[in-house]
Design a protein around this nucleic acid. Structure first.
Lengths: 259, 259
DNA sequence: CGCGGTCGACTGGTCATACCAGTTGACCAT
DNA sequence: ATGGTCAACTGGTATGACCAGTCGACCGCG
């Protein structure tokens, strides 16, 4: 029997989640003034310390602006938040996956992947080479087992990123992986073709070992292209809602759902 | 007379900065146990609330792990932090710019830029087209004034990112811009050739208007290539420290300085 | 009328002191 | 060797007070 750990949430976490949701979902538009800390205490029936901890975190996340003496106002998170907000954005009000966010993640993955392979080929150490090859062998052994292949593929890319010696990529990868993890179950079948393309993984590992950055780049691009195309087909199929009513500027009501 | 606003820092901010620096600089290695909250109060001579607010933020930033009843330990921020840590990483202990971080930012810029242009060409609205062209005209008027050109170029890329309709790119751009802003003065001369290449900016704006994603991609790639190459030359010239002593795994003492 | 000063009613920031709640390890009985 | 008990930690929550900024209404002077 597989039991999950009980998930606990501190009060300040609960406050943070509630306010964060309200802001990210658009229920609190940018510029809106939040209730005062003392008012929030009454509304949420919690201690002021808990409220303050939550507000400080919201401020750090770029969701609100706090002014001593003045009030606290909602910011435009699209212009002030960081990548770590992605995992929060992935689910919308109904608890379903926001297709546009999922698409964004896959696009960023496709854009960075080839360059990660390129840099890794230029800079990776022998230790990285060995571990990459070991991973390829493990993928070879796990032939056909898609969930395992997916796990190994993530480790493969993790290694490539560490070997690329680019701190910006490493940090971005952390955020992307967090979002990607939530998508794994949904993606595992769609990405089947990409995950089963063992020869490409082997080719990348080999190119990295040889220091052949051009080859690593191209193989990686071709590899990711498979999954990206598969994803886009699924996304297009799921977009059954009214789409031709596309208008000019901002339209916060343009999101579609997924199982 | 140009006076700057007085910068204030709350106590919890100060605590956060101090601990954050200690962790990011490596003085507190991953796995290290932090002193208890009550001990930190004595050490820092502040209220426990201030300490708690700071610790909560550190936890959210992926720098520490807090356990109710257990202790709080330092995490490996390279694997748990998000892109918003870049601006903190940019400066090292001596207050100088970390060249590897700067290089990372430029590499990510170069990798994402062409794809941003591509997606913008596919998805941008007429409103974006108009504002892009207006910006190009403004750049034309500011001929030669590098700082102004740099400011306009940032706005240009900001518009492209918004037009690309990719939330991951938008959020990543927010973090990159924060770091990039700190580099502006240093980069303005180095990027002179790129900034003065008005025809490329105009070509991108035009390609976006026509929906010509291929052209937008290629021109953007060529444009960024100029600056990237210039930067790398400067970085190579600044790397005068002992470099051939490159060894295998982790070496936290491999950073060079900049003015 | 306009300018500056005063003051009161907000806002967030800090503090001290309790007590609740979870973790750990030593100890002990079974 | 297993499980129970307990004390000494740890972080989490609560309360009430006060400090420190901001804002706007108000007043009085030039």
């Amino acid at each position: 029997m597989s039991l999950k750990p009980i998930e606990r949430k501190s009060l300040s976490d609960a406050v943070f989640d509630q306010l964060s949701d309200a802001i990210v979902s658009g229920r609190m538009a940018p510029g809106t003034a939040l209730p005062s800390e003392r008012t929030l205490c009454e509304m949420l029936q919690v201690n002021r310390g808990a409220v303050r901890e939550a507000l400080k975190r919201l401020s750090q996340a770029g969701l609100i602006n706090i002014q001593h003496g003045g009030g606290t106002t909602v910011l435009d998170f699209k212009r002030t938040a960081s990548l770590d907000l992605l995992s929060q954005l992935l689910y919308n009000d109904e608890g379903t996956i926001d297709l546009k966010v999922a698409r964004s993640v896959m696009e960023m993955r496709a854009a960075l992947g080839p360059d990660v392979a390129r840099l890794c080929a230029r800079r990776a150490t022998p230790a990285i080479h060995a571990r990459l090859l070991a991973l390829v062998e493990a993928m070879d052994s796990a032939k056909g087992d898609l969930p395992t292949l997916q796990e190994l593929a993530i480790q493969f890319w993790d290694l490539l990123v560490r070997g690329a010696d680019n701190i910006a990529y490493e940090l971005a990868f952390n955020s992307l992986r967090g979002t990607y993890d939530d998508l794994r179950e949904v993606l595992v079948e769609v990405l089947g073709e990409e995950l089963r393309d063992l020869s490409s993984y082997r080719a990348i590992a080999d190119a990295v070992r040889r220091g052949d950055d051009l080859s690593a780049t191209h193989v990686a691009r071709a590899l990711m292209e498979k999954g990206t195309q598969a994803i886009f087909q699924v996304l297009a199929a799921l977009e059954t809602a009214d789409d031709p009513a596309a208008d000019g500027e901002d339209d916060p009501t343009r999101d579609e759902e997924m199982a």
